[in-house]
Design a protein around this nucleic acid. Structure first.
Lengths: 341, 341
DNA sequence: CTGAAAGCGCTTACAG
DNA sequence: CTGAAAGCGCTTACAG
């Protein structure tokens, strides 16, 4: 059980001062070739590594960033983490992952807990509850303290900071237009309740596309799902009571469930019903039929968010008060698979 | 831009010493009621929070643990993280997530980077490359330094430490036996190469079950897949050239792919071919037909691993040299769905 | 070329 | 009841 060796111990062993050891290890020209070599050899032998915590305290920088997401189980968020991790590592940063579990309180606790020097900045996608409450004081506070925050995906206009999003409205518009181009008229939308920012935007895109093509918007064809558990009945009902041409779902769970229920009702996909999903996850790829979808490229979003955050952290030294925040829009892509004709 | 306030600043404002402020905030009885109240009120007003980094340096404890996983994209690992996070948070710990991307080097770099005081302990599942190389020096070193390590899922007997696993052998045995009980004889196995510890164990369980039932083990029915990309051809070939009764796959990707290819070859699942997978992920649940599978309960594994690690971290104060490591076996469960008759 | 001192933000044993 | 001092492990401006 060889414990970590410190500068102090090396100094003692070698009978020099701590300063000398420190400088030697940094190859400072102040120190004689001789001493430097001696110290370095010794340090190597004992596998000396500077204590990160001490460095953090000294530098007021921890080289750690935190990403707060609502749920890690969602493939999209896992993808984002992977992008963040990648870019962070490339820049010598570590990534702390916090889960809000869609809870406002957990989000607040996590932020407050870490805003005390533990990390250099946050990347966050809002929890549902936070979006519903519209209470963002915890985020504002952190920003006011001078800690940079980058929001992604589920963002809000009420906060000024860097953001990484996709154009949800446009992506939904395109997906809907794609279905319309196929000649479909009765296109249903399975979406979330409006307080989920991305759900709302996607709903708007869908409506815009219909209007643009002079298709009447039928409220009966718009299903807004609140509960993430028991939504099968409402989808089944939607499919049963309407002779649909196509379904546009704002996530892949809704899409795959629609397909499963269609099969149950003996509606053939894609022959009798085309389905498009959102978020290019593992389900869309492996389900039968595989699902056409709007691909969000979470890895890219994560990478971009990490880059923006790190740039902000490292430029803050210059303490410019003319904060210029930017919003990066990551392009989406319509991936055609078997579920659309 | 109100910067974080420190004890020093409070002391100055209130014209008392830093010690007095510190003690007042800790409600020390040493300090007069009067001073205490004054300090606490002031601290509250300025929203004082102790600097975590300084505390870590002082206490030699960071209240942060790190989990290193091969891939976050695998649903199973995301599940484990969620379990770790949950238990860690309950105990006041934060979770750093590192991805090895199945690379030995990344694993080593991550560990070395964090072993310098940044965290209190590791939870790790070995990368493929590490398992192949059988080089565990980085892990041994960390343990020798006195930092606790808990391994899970992909573990090795070459290292003495706490472990959380499932009984892969038994689970595979049970799954195979389940198929045999249905009256199936020609049961194929789609598994990984042997150096992946869990793949090997599952293969052994499969073979044991066959032998136990006096079914001859046919090497042609055992497909060991190395490449995670291009394995479709070999599976298709397996299905085409053998009149199979059932397939047991060691993960859900293999299982769902087998089903997809069976459909392509006009083999009906489950009527003509039963399929069982491993790892109860989102694919098994949503694919059509939904897939019967051995459920691993990653959340539970993660929670258990976190608990063991934290216990170890917090008991280390007592510095007992009689290290007694334990291996926790999490029970698995056979989830029956549509892919088996 | 080497080292003592101050400091990052905190805690706590000790003195007064 | 209050505060100066030492210390966690490091860096760096300054003195010699």
């Amino acid at each position: 059980m060889r414990k970590k060796v410190t500068l102090k111990q090396i100094a003692k062993e070698l009978d020099v001062s701590i300063s000398t050891v420190s400088k030697s290890l940094k190859n400072s020209l102040e120190i004689s070739e001789d001493t430097r070599q001696k110290v370095q050899a010794f340090a190597k032998l004992y596998n000396y590594k500077p204590n990160n915590i001490a460095l953090s305290l000294k530098n007021k920088k921890t080289k750690t960033i935190c990403i707060i997401i609502p749920e890690i189980i969602h493939h999209f968020f896992a993808t984002v983490i992977s992008g963040v991790e990648n870019v962070a590592n490339e820049n010598g940063y570590n990534v702390l992952v916090c889960l809000s579990d869609e809870s406002f309180d957990k989000e607040v606790i996590n932020m407050e807990m870490l805003a005390n020097g533990s990390i250099d900045g946050f990347i966050i996608s809002l929890s549902k509850e936070t979006q519903q409450k519209k209470d963002f004081h915890h985020i504002v506070e952190v920003i006011n303290q001078g800690m940079p925050v980058v929001m992604f995906d589920r963002v809000t206009n009420d906060i000024l900071c860097d953001k990484v999003i996709i154009d949800d409205n446009l992506a939904a518009f395109d997906a809907t237009q794609f279905l319309i181009n196929k000649g479909f008229k009765k296109i249903a939308l399975i979406t979330t309740v409006d307080y989920v920012s991305v759900g709302k935007l996607r709903t708007e895109g869908y409506i815009k596309a219909l209007k643009n093509n002079d298709i009447k918007v039928d409220e009966n064809l718009i299903l807004k799902i609140e509960d993430t558990e028991n939504f099968e009945d409402s989808i089944e009902n939607l499919l049963r009571t309407n002779q649909l041409d196509a379904v546009f779902a704002v996530n892949e769970i809704f899409a795959v469930t629609a397909i499963k229920l269609a099969r149950k009702l003996n509606i053939k996909v894609p022959e009798e019903l085309s389905v498009i999903g959102f978020t290019d996850g593992i389900i869309s790829k492996y389900s039968t039929p595989s699902i056409s979808t709007v691909s969000q490229n979470g890895r890219k979003m994560g990478g971009k968010a990490a880059k923006m955050l790190i740039d902000r952290v490292e430029s803050e030294e210059e303490e410019q008060e003319d904060e210029q925040y930017s919003t990066e829009v990551i392009e989406t892509e319509l991936v055609e698979r078997e579920s659309t004709l």
